[in-house]
């Protein structure tokens, strides 16, 4: 037992912390942008989407890692897709049976987790070559890094686009021009381009603070 690596060795901890910062799937690797644009109009779907991705990604990483020695190399992408698709359908069915209201809000986007490139990317790059425990940490870390950006973008877009957060009014009704005030919601915020711009601003802030990320070539 003495030569076994501790569960939370510095190397394993980095698997979780790296994707949150300097190796973030959205802001550094620029993966998974499509779903980040689609579901972030409101905070609540962003959070539920983030949680669903965490569940799917952690389980898929562990499953693929357990199967890694048996998967025929030539059909490994197909095997990965089958595992992801099966998990996503399960998540969707469970949401429909137990939290019907939330599942209706997310509608098509749960199905679209299947096409999220971060998940396949991690399976291919990490889970196929590593043991289950590091794979689980890697999955959690990357999904959290993705979810974090989703929630930040959802927060900004709902606050400035609709004046609410989680459906509650933040900006008082009396401020609005329609009630004799001075304030108008930014209609751009509810359209997809604003998600790109918000992500761009996050990338800008991150790179100006961490010069290692700047590509000088």
């Amino acid at each position: 037992m003495s030569d076994r690596e501790p569960l939370f060795s510095p190397k394993n901890r980095r698997l979780i912390t790296n994707p949150l910062g300097q190796d973030n799937p959205i802001t550094v690797q620029v993966l998974g942008i499509c779903s980040a644009l689609a579901v972030t109009v409101k905070l609540k779907p962003s959070v539920v989407m983030a949680l669903s991705v965490v569940a799917v990604m952690a389980i898929a990483n562990v499953v693929i890692s357990l199967m890694r020695k048996g998967i025929p190399n030539r059909i490994r992408i197909i095997v990965q897709l089958v595992v992801i698709a099966a998990l996503v359908i399960l998540v969707d069915q469970v949401l429909k049976a137990f939290v019907y209201d939330v599942s209706k809000q997310l509608s098509v986007f749960v199905g679209l987790i299947i096409t999220n490139c971060i998940i396949m990317g991690r399976l291919e790059a990490f889970a196929l070559a590593n043991k289950p425990w590091p794979s689980l940490l890697d999955g959690l870390g990357n999904a959290a890094g993705y979810g974090m950006i989703l929630i930040i973008v959802g927060f900004v877009r709902e606050l400035f686009g609709a004046g609410t957060l989680w459906g509650y009014e933040i900006i008082p009704q009396s401020w609005f021009v329609s009630n004799g005030g001075f304030y108008v919601n930014n209609g751009m915020m509810i359209l997809p381009p604003m998600a790109l711009i918000t992500v761009g601003i996050i990338i800008w802030i991150q790179r100006s603070r961490n010069k290692d990320l700047v590509d000088i070539s």
């Binding site: 048996g70 190399n73 059909i75 095997v79 099966a86 399960l90 429909k96």
Partner: peptide, 29 residues
């Protein structure tokens, strides 16, 4: 694990297992 027979068998069994799992989940929910 790279031969043709193994690959075909692997794919076939995987599909059956996943199909059974999903139909079970769908029917019970």
């Amino acid at each position: 694990t790279q031969g043709n027979t193994y690959t075909f068998l692997y794919a076939a069994i995987m599909v059956v297992v996943v199909a059974a799992l999903l139909s079970f989940a769908a029917m019970s929910l």
